[in-house]
Write a protein that binds this DNA or RNA. Sequence first.
DNA 1: CGCCATTTAGTTGTGCACAACTGAATAGTG
DNA 2: CACTATTCAGTTGTGCACAACTAAATGGCG
Lengths: 161, 161
Amino acid sequence: MDALDTLPDEEFLRLDRQICFSLHAAARAFNGVYREALKDLGLTYPQYLVMLVLWEHGELPVKGIGERLRLDSGTLSPLLKRLEAAGYVERRRSAEDERSVTARVTAEGAALRERALGVPRRIAAATGLDLADIADLRERLGILSERLDGADPAALRPSCG
Amino acid sequence: MDALDTLPDEEFLRLDRQICFSLHAAARAFNGVYREALKDLGLTYPQYLVMLVLWEHGELPVKGIGERLRLDSGTLSPLLKRLEAAGYVERRRSAEDERSVTARVTAEGAALRERALGVPRRIAAATGLDLADIADLRERLGILSERLDGADPAALRPSCG
DNA sequence: CGCCATTTAGTTGTGCACAACTGAATAGTG
DNA sequence: CACTATTCAGTTGTGCACAACTAAATGGCG
């Protein structure tokens, strides 16, 4: 018997206002500090995420980026075009598989990495958390994402709760 | 001497890829389960957030909603128009202060609340967390948001970290 | 080989977030 | 009272997220 089951719906709705607001607000707050920290690099937060995986791998197909960031082509295609227009990334159709497009970091993109090295530290400082707290939060959020992504859609419908 | 200070930049960039991805992904995962849970109500996740505060207060000026959800008129104005078009909300200029617009829950909006009562419980079940974990996460995220929202912009720029 | 299902990017349309701005109403000051 | 600064909602423009779709290339099967 879980404590969840004993709580009245009314109470629960109030609680939901708090938890779902907290997460929503935290995500936007993070977005805000990254926006500020990345302003000089000319990157948005999602663009920075893409550059992070590209810096790590040198080049990746769009599909590979999407798998790592859980983003689809509807988000990535225009984002990569903007990164290409900024000169940080090159896109070209794969020779082996004409369906695939590979994104590759340009020299300018590689140079950008040097300027980005200080970003994480400044963000971490802004959170006021130490390394252990950050690792713990990352762990919790990772588990949460997995559970939510794997949630049974049917269990979320009205008839089932 | 914080452990943050001893970590090399390179290591930190890799860590950042993990933490900022985790939060971004968690926020989108939450969005996803709410999207599913709210589908039958015809509400998006941000619309649900607005309805939650309106259900709590009956009516609020746009400014009041914005303060509670940390959203500005650029986001709220069109969102409220959509809620009005859906019949859940009524908007009217305040008589005392012609600058202000008050959003009020309609009868249909109040009826919607009954259908929304089961939502939080289903979301909570999908997280796999118990009440204590949820409260703890909410607490941490709340503190985090406050710190990030209050962060000194200058401390996020390149010269300062 | 010929046909069809699958894979892969890309496009379109909707909604949210936010910056920058507008315009109207109000508050404050000399 | 006149003038200015502030407040408040709304609009515009950019970018992201995602659903639904298109188009082209590939793989597999009869």
